[in-house]
Design a protein around this nucleic acid. Structure first.
Length: 527
RNA sequence: GAUCUCGUAGCUCAGUCGGUAGAGCACUUGACUUUUAAUCAAGGAGUCAUGGGUUCGAAUCCCAUCGAGAUCACCA
C-alpha cells in the first residue's frame, strides 16, 4: 500500500471546521513525517519503569567531595503522554510525562541529541512538533534536579502516537489547588477518555469497582459456586417487575427482550443439579434515568441449593465485610458515604418489615385493615391510588417513612406475599414470605429469598401476576411455562440473592451519582 | 414526566442598563543555559447551543427546540 501523504485539505473534517490548534497539530504531523519520523510507529516500545515508582524510590548518596552518586534507575525506559512542557533557555526543556502510574518530570537537553543539519531532532521534532498530549517513549536515567525533583534525564525520545486535539490543561499550584479543572459533567461522561486522562483521580473509582467485583467473585469461588452465563436475549422477560427493552431477531422472526433479570435461568441451573451458581450480569430496564438509575446496570445474582434466607444473611455479612476491607485504603471495615460512616462488619440488624414500620411510625400494620392504612397514608401525605391492596400500601408506607432511616446495614425481613411472586411462603408466619432486602444508607442494595420451589404454588403466583397485568400493571411478570416445567421436575430448597453492583460501587467509593461509577453512562445523542 | 438552573475561544470563566466579544491557561512568534501553575514581550483564535421574535441595534429581552445538571415524581 502506498503511504498516504496527507495534506491539510485532505482531512475529513474540512479545515474551516477545524480549530487553529487542530490545524497546527496536523501540520506538525506532516512535518514529522518529512523529517522521517513515523508519528504512529507499529513496533512495540519496551517499558521498564513507571513514573510513580521512580519518583517514590529513587535513591542517591552524597560523596565526601560533595558530588552525588545515583544508586538506582540508571537505565530506564518509560512511556506515556507529555502533559506539560517548560522551556528553560533554548537548550533545555522540562516536561511532565504521565503514564498509568502517575507523572514524572523529564529533563531534555539539546546536547544529548545529534544535530543533523537536515533534520535537527531537538530543535524541530522535540521543540516544535511535539505537542501536549502526544504519547512518547523515553530512555534515560533518573536523577534529582537542583530544585530537588526526581526526574528522568532523557537520552532518547521516540514518538509513539501523535495527539491531534488539545487536551484540557489542568494545572495544580504549589498549595495543591487545581486550576481550570475539567469539570463539566456532560463532557466528562461523553469523553471519558479525556476525563480519565486529565482527572486521573477518578481512575480510582473504577479500580475500586473492579476490586469490589473481584472480591465478591473470589468469595463465591471459595464457597464452591460455579460462575455461569445465561441469556441476555430472552423470549419471555421474567424474574423481576420492570418494563423491558424489546428487539427483534430477523432469522427467527421473533420478538426478543433484553433481560430485566436472570433469576429464572439461574434457578433452572439449580434444577439441573449444580449446588450453587452465580453470574455478574448486565440487566436492562426501560425506565427512567436519574442519579441512581441507568438503563443498563450490573447485578450479581447467586443461588445455593439446600440453604435458606437465614444462611444467605450470614453470607451477605461476610461478603460485604470482605469487600469493605478490600476497598478501604486503611483496611478497615467501614465506608464513608456522605456524612455517614457505614460499618460493614456483621452482624447486621435484622428487622421484620412490620416491626420496622411500627418502630418508625407507631403503626401496627399487622392488625390494621386496609381502610386504616389508607387513612394513615392520607394523613401522612403518601400518594396512593384505589387499585392498591394492603401489601402495596404497606410497601408505600415503608418507602416513605422507614427506608431513609436505615443507614447502617439492615436486613429487612418477612414481606407480604403479594409482592413477591417467586418467594417461598414463610415457614411460620401466614401471609408472609421468606424474603429480605438489605438496606444501606437508606437505599436497597440487595434482595434475597428462600426460593419458591413448589411448582403448583408457583403457577398460582404467576396466574396472580397475569391478573395484575390484565388490570394494566405493565410490570407484572409473564407466565413462564418452561420455568414451571423445570420446577415440576424438582428444585431443591434454595436460597438466592441479587445485589445491585452499581449501588454498592457508589457506596464504597462515596459517589452520589451512578454515572460516576459507570465508564460510559447512557447519554442522549450529541447534536 | 414536572419544576428550577445552566450552555460565550481547545479548557475554566467574566460580559453591567440592549450599543462593534473579554480574561487566565492552552496555541503562534521572539527572549531566557535547571524549570515546575516557569517568567517576560508581541500576536492569532468565537455559528455567544439551535431556530424564530421584539428592536435602529440582541450573548443580553421574549418564544420554541436540543443538550446537561439539580430537586421532585416514577422505579424491586
Amino acid at each position: 500500500m502506498p503511504r498516504t501523504n496527507p495534506q491539510i485539505h485532505d482531512f475529513n473534517k474540512s479545515p474551516s471546521k477545524m480549530t487553529e490548534q487542530e490545524i497546527l497539530r496536523r501540520e506538525s504531523l506532516v512535518k514529522l513525517r518529512e523529517l522521517g519520523i513515523d508519528p504512529y510507529p507499529a513496533e512495540m516500545f519496551e517499558v521498564t519503569a513507571f513514573a510513580s515508582d521512580i519518583a517514590a524510590n529513587y535513591q542517591e548518596e552524597v560523596l565526601e567531595d560533595g558530588s552525588k552518586n545515583r544508586l538506582n534507575f540508571q537505565s530506564v525506559s518509560l512511556a506515556g503522554r507529555i502533559m506539560a512542557s517548560r522551556e528553560a533557555g533554548n537548550k533545555v526543556i522540562f516536561m511532565n510525562l504521565q503514564d498509568s502510574s502517575g507523572r514524572i518530570q523529564l529533563y531534555v537537553k539539546r546536547d544529548d541529541f545529534l544535530q543533523d543539519e537536515e533534520s535537527p531532532f531537538f530543535d524541530l521534532a522535540i521543540k516544535k512538533y511535539l505537542d501536549l498530549g502526544d504519547y512518547v517513549g523515553v530512555k534515560g536515567f533518573a536523577f534529582r534536579t537542583k530544585t530537588g525533583e526526581v526526574s528522568v534525564h532523557v537520552q532518547e525520545l521516540k514518538f509513539l502516537a501523535k495527539s491531534l486535539r488539545p487536551l484540557p490543561v489542568v494545572k495544580k499550584d504549589a498549595e495543591g489547588n487545581v486550576h481550570d479543572a475539567f469539570t463539566d459533567p456532560e463532557m466528562r461522561y461523553r469523553m471519558r477518555y479525556v476525563d480519565l486522562t486529565v482527572n486521573t483521580e477518578f481512575r480510582q473509582i473504577f479500580i475500586k469497582r473492579t476490586l469490589l467485583i473481584k472480591t465478591m467473585r473470589n468469595y463465591l469461588d471459595e464457597l464452591g459456586l460455579l460462575e455461569v452465563e445465561t441469556p441476555i436475549l430472552q423470549p419471555i422477560h421474567g424474574g423481576a417487575a420492570a418494563r423491558p427493552f424489546t428487539t427483534h431477531h430477523n432469522t427467527l422472526d421473533m420478538k426478543l427482550y433484553l433481560r430485566i433479570a436472570n433469576e429464572l435461568y439461574l434457578k433452572r441451573l439449580i434444577v439441573a443439579g449444580f449446588d450453587g451458581v452465580y453470574e455478574f450480569a448486565k440487566m436492562f430496564r426501560n425506565e427512567g434515568m436519574d442519579r441512581t438509575h441507568n438503563p443498563e446496570f450490573t447485578a450479581l445474582e447467586f443461588y445455593v441449593a439446600y440453604k435458606d434466607y437465614n444462611w444467605m444473611m450470614d453470607v451477605t455479612e461476610i461478603m460485604l465485610e470482605k469487600v469493605a476491607r478490600a476497598i478501604h485504603t486503611e483496611g478497615g471495615s467501614t465506608a464513608q458515604v456522605g456524612d455517614n460512616v457505614i460499618e460493614f462488619a456483621g452482624p447486621y440488624r435484622r428487622l421484620t418489615m412490620f416491626d420496622a414500620i411500627q418502630e418508625y411510625t407507631g403503626l401496627n400494620v399487622e392488625t390494621a385493615d386496609e381502610s386504616e392504612l389508607r387513612n394513615y397514608c392520607q394523613k401522612a401525605h403518601i400518594e396512593i391510588d384505589a387499585s392498591m391492596g394492603k401489601a402495596k400500601l404497606i410497601d408505600e408506607i415503608f418507602g416513605a417513612k422507614v427506608e431513609g432511616h436505615l443507614i447502617q446495614p439492615t436486613f429487612l425481613i418477612d414481606y407480604p406475599m403479594e409482592m413477591s411472586p417467586l418467594t417461598k411462603k414463610h415457614r411460620i408466619k401466614p401471609g408472609l414470605v421468606e424474603r429480605f432486602e438489605l438496606f444501606v444508607n437508606g437505599k436497597e442494595v440487595a434482595n434475597a429469598y428462600s426460593e419458591l420451589n413448589d411448582p403448583i404454588d408457583q403457577r398460582e403466583r404467576f396466574e396472580e401476576q397475569l391478573r395484575l397485568a390484565a388490570r394494566g400493571d405493565e410490570e407484572a411478570m409473564a407466565m413462564d411455562e418452561d420455568f414451571l416445567r423445570a420446577l415440576e421436575y424438582g428444585m431443591p430448597p434454595t436460597a438466592g440473592i441479587g445485589f445491585g453492583i452499581d449501588r454498592l460501587a457508589m457506596m464504597f467509593t462515596g459517589q452520589a451519582s451512578i454515572q460516576e461509577v459507570l465508564f460510559f453512562p447512557q447519554m442522549r445523542p450529541e447534536v
